[in-house]
Computed example of a mutant assay.
Amino acid sequence: MKLANLRVEGGLALGAELDGRIVNITQAGANFDMPAPLDMDDLIQNYRAPDVSAIVNRLLQDGGIESVEVREAAFAPLVTRPQKIICVGFNYRAHAAETGTPIPKAPPLFSKFVNALNHHDGDIELPTLVDKEFDYETELVIVFGQKCKNVSKENALSVVAGYAVGNDFSARGLQNITTQFTAGKMSDGFAPLGPWLVTRDRVPEPNNLRLRTWVNGEIRQDSNTSEMIFDCREIISYVAGIMTIEPGDILFTGTPPGVIWGQKVPRDERQWLKAGDKVVSAIEGLSELAVRLR
């Protein structure tokens, strides 16, 4: 099932893709006098369903639900109330090489915060008073569906609710001015995510998905999640060994080569992202995530 967080009058609602259109599951539940999640966070954090599509199927079985074209939907950030936004850096050998970074011995972790969450067709207001070097990082994002700790690699995917397209948007000047680069990752809107949560049953192997990025229609990244240094199972097991994971937590898994930071030209000659640019991130089977810069 492909699920979405929708912006509706009065707040948020849970949406689902059905025959190429979007149905408002929250509204359908009210129409059917059936319990339904209020939004994506409610579904993942409160329903505790290992297969989130089961709830959607219950709501759809009677039919007769109003739907809209996908292009007409107003998407919200895929989740809005995660406890944690965990990110992995330098998780593709070619990306580490293009930035002159040694291959890590363990997944390098950093965090974003809730203020950074953004949505499909959203805007990113560039913090130009503190930086001018803005960059894209298309990434596979894991959304957790269960509370867990000390998960084995063999069982790691069982705690996943689903997968999504993400953009670990970065301000490279802030990222590189100190050894702690979270400052370059934490600005408002710097974590676009969506438009869909594709449930784990629809993604049998997350480490075999084509990943691409376009800037103003020009292809910039074209890789595959099979090229990760630490695959999804390893990352989940590693993170869950450090801390307790809660339902609704999200994990950015790293970006492949092709970022502006890795261009083999002098830094002051690189064509950093600027206001007016459009960045489109795509992952096989998960759709496209678009943002505009202003």
Results as ranks from 00 to 15, higher is better:
residue 4 A to P: 05
residue 12 L to D: 08
residue 16 A to R: 06
residue 20 G to A: 13
residue 25 I to M: 14
residue 26 T to A: 00
residue 29 G to W: 01
residue 35 P to V: 02
residue 36 A to C: 02
residue 36 A to Q: 00
residue 39 D to Y: 01
residue 43 L to G: 06
residue 47 Y to I: 02
residue 48 R to K: 14
residue 57 N to Q: 15
residue 60 L to S: 07
residue 61 Q to P: 00
residue 63 G to P: 07
residue 65 I to H: 11
residue 66 E to P: 08
residue 67 S to N: 10
residue 69 E to T: 15
residue 74 A to D: 11
residue 77 P to C: 14
residue 79 V to R: 09
residue 82 P to N: 13
residue 84 K to M: 15
residue 85 I to E: 10
residue 90 F to D: 10
residue 90 F to P: 01
residue 101 T to M: 14
residue 104 P to Y: 11
residue 114 V to S: 00
residue 115 N to S: 08
residue 118 N to Q: 04
residue 124 I to C: 02
residue 127 P to L: 06
residue 130 V to F: 08
residue 135 D to H: 05
residue 151 V to T: 13
residue 155 N to W: 03
residue 156 A to I: 06
residue 159 V to C: 15
residue 168 D to R: 02
residue 174 L to H: 02
residue 175 Q to M: 05
residue 178 T to W: 02
residue 185 K to V: 06
residue 189 G to I: 00
residue 190 F to V: 10
residue 190 F to Y: 14
residue 191 A to E: 06
residue 198 V to L: 10
residue 200 R to V: 12
residue 211 L to N: 00
residue 216 N to D: 08
residue 219 I to G: 01
residue 224 N to E: 06
residue 240 A to D: 08
residue 244 T to K: 11
residue 245 I to A: 07
residue 247 P to L: 10
residue 253 T to P: 07
residue 254 G to N: 10
residue 256 P to I: 09
residue 258 G to S: 12
residue 260 I to P: 02
residue 264 K to Q: 15
residue 267 R to C: 11
residue 272 W to I: 14
residue 272 W to N: 09
residue 276 G to W: 02
residue 280 V to M: 11
residue 282 A to G: 00
residue 283 I to F: 07
residue 283 I to T: 01
residue 293 L to T: 12
residue 293 L to V: 12
residue 294 R to L: 11
